[in-house]
C-alpha cells in the first residue's frame, strides 16, 4: 500500500512538473479549447435563447422544451462528435456544431421554463396596468426569469467546455490533444493536461456563477445560485 501511494504521488509530481515546464504550450491549448467552446456556446445561445424565451412568453411548445432536455441528456457527446465528423469532415466546424447541439438543450429548456413559470398574477396585473406584450416580456418576465435562465446558460457552458477535450479525437485541438496522445506526451503530460482541463471548467463555472449573481435583480438575490443546478432535473 505504501509503495502504491508513493508511486501515485510521484505520478502527480511529474504531472505538475509537466505543467511547470510547458506553461505557454498548455495556455495556447487552453485558449484553443476556449475558442472552440465559445463559438459553440455562441451558436447554441443564438438558436436556443430567442426560441425558448418566445415560446415561454406565449406559453406554447412545452413539447419543444422537453425534447430539448431529452436531446441534451440522451445524446452521448462522443456519438454526436463522431456523427458530425462523418457529415462535416474533421476539424473546427464539425466540433463546433456538435458541441453547439449539445449545449442547446439546457438553454432551450431553462429559457422556456424561466419565462413560462413567471407568476401569472404578476403578468396579469402588468397587463391590467396597460403594458403591451413586449413591455411585459422586457420589464416583467425577463428580469424575473434571470436566475433560472442563467442557470441554463451556465450548465450549457460548463457542458461544452467539459466536452471539448473529447473533440480532440476529431481534430478539435485544445487540451484534449494532449490527453488523447499519451504516446507523445506520456502519462505526466496526459495527467497535467487533465488537471488543466479540470481547472478550466471549474474556472468557467465560477466565473459564470459570479456573473449570474451580478446580473440577478436585487429582489431575487436571496436564492441560491450554485445549489439550483439540479433544479431542472427535479422533474
Amino acid at each position: 500500500m505504501m509503495l502504491a501511494d508513493a508511486a501515485n504521488l510521484h505520478t502527480f509530481v511529474d504531472a505538475l512538473r509537466f505543467i511547470g515546464a510547458n506553461p505557454g504550450f498548455l495556455a495556447q491549448k487552453a485558449l484553443e479549447q476556449l475558442e472552440l467552446s465559445g463559438a459553440a456556446l455562441g451558436i447554441a445561445l443564438a438558436v436556443a435563447l430567442p426560441l425558448g424565451i418566445v415560446l415561454g412568453h406565449f406559453h406554447r411548445g412545452s413539447g419543444v422544451a422537453i425534447a430539448g432536455s431529452i436531446v441534451g441528456r440522451a445524446l452521448p457527446s462522443l456519438v454526436l462528435i463522431a456523427a458530425f465528423l462523418t457529415l462535416l469532415g474533421i476539424g473546427f466546424v464539425n466540433n463546433m456544431v456538435a458541441l453547439a447541439v449539445l449545449g442547446t438543450g439546457p438553454i432551450l429548456t431553462n429559457s422556456y421554463d424561466s419565462v413560462d413559470r413567471v407568476d401569472k398574477d404578476v403578468v396579469e396585473s402588468a397587463r391590467g396596468m396597460g403594458m403591451t406584450g413586449w413591455q411585459i416580456l422586457r420589464r416583467i418576465e425577463l428580469p424575473l426569469a434571470i436566475p433560472l435562465l442563467f442557470t441554463g446558460i451556465r450548465i450549457s457552458a460548463v457542458t461544452i467546455v467539459a466536452t471539448a477535450p473529447i473533440a480532440a479525437i476529431a481534430g478539435g485541438g485544445g487540451l484534449g490533444d494532449v490527453i488523447v496522445n499519451q504516446a507523445s506526451y506520456r502519462l505526466s503530460g496526459v495527467l497535467g493536461a487533465s488537471l488543466c482541463v479540470m481547472a478550466l471548467s471549474a474556472f468557467v463555472f465560477v466565473a459564470l456563477a459570479g456573473f449570474q449573481i451580478s446580473v440577478t435583480p436585487r429582489g431575487l438575490r436571496g436564492t441560491s445560485v450554485i445549489g439550483d443546478q439540479t433544479r431542472k432535473e427535479q422533474q
Binding site: A162, P165, I166, S194, L195, M198, Q229
Partner: peptide, 11 residues
C-alpha cells in the same frame, strides 16, 4: 459535476 469525464478517468 464540472469535472470533465475524460479528465477524471485519466486522473
Amino acid at each position: 459535476y464540472t469535472i470533465p469525464s475524460l479528465a477524471l478517468f485519466q486522473l
